[in-house]
């Protein structure tokens, strides 16, 4: 049959361009190019300590970006990941420092708070049909305000909870391989990424995440309770933001209630650089990780080269536009 051979002919091409492999490759190549460029430009760049600093800097943004990726693949957007992170950190502070509960309970409370807030966003979006941009913009402000209210606008320190700072700063890997003192925060980022990646590729939740972003109405007409699944995805993203909250609180050994605004944009930037489509239906966690690394390498490298902070921001913005342009150009080509 003619149609069959037509499709067959297209296959090898389609396989390459549709898997998003190209975009990932491009992002990965950019990352390598940046690393090489900065190493040549400054001998201080390729130091183990500096590399570890980059990874450490990636950990929080990376975790938030993973959360944002899930929501973005459904065709939504989550603007609340930054302030939700802060809110969860404050909750951990309340449970651990104010209430003096054990460490594990504080961590659990932060993640539960994240999941609950995510569920709220998900309810606004799925049940009340508020556009994700508005729903999560509202959540972003609510959570920022609540963080300040609960903490009394003062940082909450974790000095009474020994070991809390080790969650992010300690290094289990370093204890086993002293030459590789990779902080636990980085380890946690990778664990979160692997888990999210697994959920996306192997579970019903993941399959529906892509399906919702691909064609929500078709999924609904297949008899799937799309609202419920969407709420679950937002809740999962929220829980991951809770982990982000623990990481940042642990790194600063305090919950800083004023922090958080602006993190959501960095997270979304990492997602976009990593090749996830803002229109939904496509995206990978690996791409997001690479995107987060690119942003961290860029910030760090420019600092090592003593480029002024103001200019670092300008460069980051330019990179985002470039990355999306490259993605668009590729898409247009593969038609």
């Amino acid at each position: 049959m003619t149609t069959a051979t037509d499709v067959e002919k297209k296959k090898p091409l389609a396989g390459l361009s549709d898997s998003g492999a190209y975009q990932k490759l491009l992002a990965f190549a950019s990352l390598i190019a940046l690393l090489i460029g900065f190493s040549i430009a400054s001998p201080n760049f390729m130091q183990t300590s500096n590399m570890i600093a980059i990874l450490q800097a990636t950990s929080v943004n990376g975790v938030l970006a993973v959360a944002a990726t899930l929501v973005i693949i459904t065709g939504g957007i989550d603007l609340s990941v930054g302030t939700l992170m802060t809110f969860c950190a404050v909750i951990a502070g309340v449970v651990l420092t104010y209430l003096g509960m054990p460490l594990l309970l504080g961590v659990a409370a932060a993640i539960a708070a994240g999941a609950f807030c995510g569920l709220c966003s998900g309810t606004f979006v799925a049940k009340m049909k508020i556009p994700p941009f508005i729903a999560t913009l509202g959540m972003m402000l609510i959570l920022k305000g609540l963080s300040l209210v609960i903490s009394g606008t003062r940082p909450i320190y974790f000095n009474d909870t020994p070991g809390f700072d080790q969650i992010s700063r300690g290094s289990l890997i370093g204890e086993i391989f002293p030459a590789l003192p990779i902080p636990n925060g980085v380890l946690i980022l990778f664990l979160v990424a692997i888990a999210a990646s697994y959920i996306l590729s192997r579970t019903v939740l993941g399959r529906y995440t892509f399906a919702l972003g691909s064609n929500e109405e078709a999924v609904r007409l297949s008899g799937v309770n799309t609202d419920a699944w969407k709420m679950r995805i937002y809740a999962l993203a929220g829980a991951i933001c809770g982990i982000g909250g623990i990481l940042i609180a642990s790194r600063l050994n305090s919950a800083q209630p004023a922090l958080g605004l602006g993190y959501e944009l960095e997270a979304i930037a990492a997602v976009v650089i990593g090749g996830t489509s803002l229109s939904g239906g496509r995206g990978t966690i690996l791409g997001t990780l690479i995107g987060a690394l690119i942003m961290a390498v860029l910030t760090n490298g420019l600092r090592v080269l003593s480029v002024a902070q103001e200019w670092q921001t300008v460069v980051t913005g330019a990179i985002i536009i470039l990355a999306v342009y490259a993605d668009m150009a590729r898409r247009k080509k593969s038609g």
């Binding site: 399959r207 892509f210 399906a211 972003g213 691909s214 064609n215 109405e217 078709a218 999924v219 007409l221 297949s222 799937v224 239906g281 496509r282």
Partner: peptide, 15 residues
């Protein structure tokens, strides 16, 4: 309304 066109054949069948 019928297909998640960005997804593959088997996932659409299983949807």
């Amino acid at each position: 309304f019928g297909l998640a066109t960005g997804m593959n054949v088997r996932d659409n069948i299983a949807l």
